[in-house]
């Protein structure tokens, strides 16, 4: 498939936002049972959630450019919530603003410190609901790809797991850097979790790389045109200057390029941040920020590769691209 930058930015940015929210709320729930020191409501929880929300807003902004025209965002995008019964894309279009609204509410409750002296603070309840929404959004995003049974590279539960773990890893890495500023006693906690999730992501992403390397196509040239012969050669695709079919479904890059992107993302999204987190877990702000920056760039490469690697069965009809 042709990797669209709007979707690459959308999925990586909301992933960071979702992961960051999960990190902040993990901090609050651990503190509620006295496993971690509690933090200032507005300076840590509200601000951290605001950072998470900012990433999600940026992601939504990127998504606008995936529409046919940005103006469809105002005029037509509301229709996207109507087909939630069948369409995972529709479910994502519902879950994204809903999650953002819940994240916003959670930040507001913390900022104003509403009900923080109650036996069960409302932020804990709200945070749990928001956590469910965050996972629902991860599921919807992943299932958009994992539900397309024709695209074998995506049609696998690993696709959803990777979205959860890679989003979570980048969010926890950001939380480690953020806490270096706002709550130094939490840096080690977040850095260690970020390393665990990043390592888990490496395992599952690596598993999907191995799976995809051995994948066998289901449709063949023979079934595509219905001719039983071992030697079929396309002579004309029905057009000369290319069409939507030759633009949307091909990455138009060399095999070597694809392979180097794979190694780049393995280093930038996994190896380098793991090393930087290990070195910076004492509270070194620069190292932690670098870990997040490097990991985010690595995830951009990872997402590009995710799309480029997917081989659509319609490509059988376009053999001379």
């Amino acid at each position: 498939m042709h990797p669209a930058f709007s979707v690459i930015f959308l999925t990586t940015l909301i992933g960071v936002g979702q992961g960051m929210f999960l990190a902040v709320f993990t901090g609050e729930s651990y503190a509620a049972v006295h496993l971690l020191p509690g933090q200032d409501s507005s300076a840590f929880y509200a601000l951290g959630t605001a950072v998470a929300l900012a990433f999600m807003v940026l992601g939504l902004f990127a998504a606008v450019f995936h529409l046919g025209k940005p103006s469809y965002f105002i005029t037509r995008a509301w229709r996207g919530i109507t087909q939630w019964r069948t369409s995972w894309l529709s479910r994502e279009l519902i879950m994204l603003p809903l999650t953002m609204f819940l994240v916003f509410l959670y930040a507001v409750f913390h900022y104003f410190g509403w009900g923080k002296d109650l036996a069960v603070p409302p932020t804990l309840v709200l945070g749990s609901i928001t956590t469910a929404a965050v996972f629902g959004l991860f599921l919807a995003t992943g299932m958009i790809y994992a539900s397309l049974k024709f695209i074998r590279e995506w049609y696998c539960s690993l696709t959803v797991i990777n979205y959860v773990l890679l989003g979570g890893a980048s969010g926890f890495t950001l939380a480690a850097a953020f806490s270096a500023y706002q709550a130094p006693e939490l840096v080690t906690f977040y850095a260690i979790w970020a390393m665990i999730i990043t390592a888990a992501g490496l395992v599952t992403r690596g598993a999907s790389l191995i799976r995809n390397a051995r994948i066998k196509p289901i449709a063949t040239m023979q079934s595509a045109i219905g001719v039983r012969h071992t030697h079929i050669q396309q002579k004309s695709m029905g057009m000369m200057g290319g069409s939507y079919n030759t633009r949307e479904y091909f990455h138009h890059k060399t095999r070597a390029f694809l392979k180097s992107v794979k190694w780049i993302f393995l280093v930038l999204a996994f190896a380098a941040p793991l090393a930087l987190l290990a070195l910076g877990q004492g509270g070194n702000v620069e190292l932690l920020l670098a870990a997040f920056g490097v990991q985010y760039v690595g995830l951009l490469f990872e997402r590009w590769f995710f799309f480029a690697q997917a081989n659509h069965p319609q490509n059988l009809y376009y053999q001379t691209v």
Binding site: G68, K69, Y72, L89, A219, H312, P313, Q314
Partner: peptide, 24 residues
């Protein structure tokens, strides 16, 4: 009603749909 998200064209295994670059 179409918002031009192209998702349907990804779901068609035959490549039978074409996005209109002008009408979007």
């Amino acid at each position: 009603k179409c918002i031009g998200c192209k998702y349907c064209s990804w779901a068609c295994p035959y490549g039978a749909r074409e996005f209109d670059e002008h009408q979007k």
